[in-house]
């Protein structure tokens, strides 16, 4: 089994799955009907991307598992998502800031991954890029509205960016796993995505009249299975049925 590729695919699938889940929590509770629809739409795209990445991971693993087995029958220690995406929604400001920071990364990431030497991976990235481009436009526009809206919305948006900044470093980590795949031409060097991400984020923050926090200490660990406390609750909810009724088909 190609352990490196398997683990890398899990990282992408898990980040999409967990962020999609967080967005889906808004469905029926958003500030206005158009936002209910838009957030559900992005959740749907991300869940679809998760399904595709986890499906490919299962295929690479070749142990008879499928995307559902990977999604519903792994616990916190085996999840490989970014810490950023597992953070609870809190309010719409934090949800949008989290989404924008992730989307701006995902656009750069998929753009680079679409040139992967593995055709299956490249195809998933190319499809994901179209969706991520739309997501970034949505989250960027909303961040501008909130930042350059009322005093309250500005304060909330700034607080969200400040709170989330420490989780952004993990998106650009290039550990031994990534380095091995970079050598094989399968993955891009994640460090190389930082400059373009910085530029995208700087543009939108400036338009939103928000201050870019300094790059201080960065949280890390999600990609290696070291998570915060919120993920366990999310998984307990998400995995309830398949766990409570082992072997049942739905």
């Amino acid at each position: 089994m190609d352990q490196g590729l398997f683990s890398y695919l899990l990282r992408q699938g898990d980040s999409c799955l967990i962020l999609g889940h967080r967005l889906s929590e808004w469905c029926g509770h958003a500030p206005q009907l158009e936002l209910d629809i838009a957030l559900a739409n992005i959740a749907l795209d991300l869940t679809g991307q998760a399904d595709a990445f986890l499906g490919l991971a299962a295929e690479v693993e070749g142990q008879g598992r499928d995307a559902d087995a990977l999604a519903f029958h792994r616990d916190v220690l085996d999840y490989r998502n970014l810490l950023l995406v597992e953070l609870p929604n809190e309010d719409f400001g934090l949800t949008i800031a989290r989404q924008f920071l992730f989307d701006a990364w995902q656009v750069e990431f998929y753009g680079a991954l679409a040139r992967s030497s593995d055709q299956r991976v490249a195809a998933l990235a190319a499809k994901g890029l179209r969706e991520a481009t739309y997501h970034e436009r949505f989250s960027g526009e909303w961040l501008v509205r909130l930042g350059d809206g009322t005093d309250e919305s500005h304060a909330r948006a700034q607080a969200a960016i400040d709170e989330l900044w420490t989780y952004t470093g993990e998106m650009f980590e290039c550990d031994a796993l990534v380095a091995g795949l970079v050598e094989r031409g399968i993955a891009p060097d994640h460090r190389g995505l930082k400059a373009a991400w910085d530029a995208r984020v700087a543009d939108v923050l400036a338009e939103a009249t928000l201050r870019r926090p300094a790059d201080g200490w960065m949280q890390s660990g999600g990609l290696k299975g070291r998570h915060g406390e919120a993920l366990g609750h999310l998984l307990a909810e998400m995995q309830f049925l398949p766990r409570a009724y082992p072997g049942a088909r739905w």
Partner: peptide, 23 residues
């Protein structure tokens, strides 16, 4: 039940359905 749908497929279908209701 969106956050507790028992498979990825069911989750996507339900999300799409509830989104339709909003539409």
């Amino acid at each position: 039940w969106i956050t507790r749908a028992p498979s990825l497929r069911r989750k996507m279908i339900l999300l799409a359905k509830v989104q339709d209701e909003g539409g």
